[in-house]
Amino acid sequence: MITQLLASGLALGSVYALLALSLVLIHKATDVVNFAQGEMAMFGTYACFALLTKTEFPLPVVMLAAVPLGILLGVATERITMGPLRSAPPVNALIATIGLWMIFHHTAGWIWGYDPVRFPSLFSPEPINILGARVAQNSLGIIAVSLLVMVLLYLFFEFTRMGIAMRAASQNRRAAQLMGVNVTRISLIAWGLATAVSVVCGLLIAPLTFLDFEMMLSVLLKAFAGAILGGFNSLPGAVVGCLVIGVVENLIAAYVSTAFKDTFAFGIIIVVLMFRPQGLFTREIVKKV
């Protein structure tokens, strides 16, 4: 029982982690928190579902198609909305992402309807035996896919030219600019990459919750909580933070009550901000003049 709970908690947490990674990725690259990230994930997932039902491609193919689709969605969104705001005060970009939130949220409902739809899963919910413990296959599948995405991200930032440039830019924007790193390009890539990751997140969560235009709100809140737990500036921090959130959520739902399983994240956000605002893993930040 407890291993089941832990495994499904970790699975949930790794889904949150994907969305949190998207949030932190864009924040590190451009200083913008994209409040529409969850809605973009939901929109991409609906698009994949349309592809699935219209073309009858097999599910794994559609899941692979999610990556270019997400990149396209992210890049187009960045170009149209964020590009013109690059020199505006930061609060304007924040407001624009809230506009995006409304657009994606209600366009999805408008096109695809407001009723939840069953979304097929790659993995069966049947438990299997691992080292004497019974663990649901779909938990393992979700963890595996998330892990794969994280490894790919790691390889990108560690070994590709663009990834290294992005890391440099996030540490010192002015210096990176002087070294010829193109800020516009970095923002585009961050949005593309982040949206692709978040669409994968949507595809993993849709089979668990049904595909629904409301499905990402609670995920967004928990991704925020996880990211804040991890300091909001560190990709591994966000992953660990979200895993903690996923496990805690499952334990609360099993042993306390399911009523507040979505809003407990708010409690975590407040507690972290009060006692350890820099997150669990990072040092206190200093202001740059």
């Binding site: 409040f35 709100l217 708010f266 407040i270 901000l273 605002p277 202001k287």
Partner: peptide, 23 residues
């Protein structure tokens, strides 16, 4: 609580707060 940190934390906290109040 959100004041000790710069940036967008306050916005995030308000989002959580509103959902919490509604619930």
């Amino acid at each position: 609580p959100a004041l000790r940190v710069q940036g967008h934390y306050l916005a995030i906290a308000t989002l959580g707060f509103a959902l919490f109040v509604q619930q």
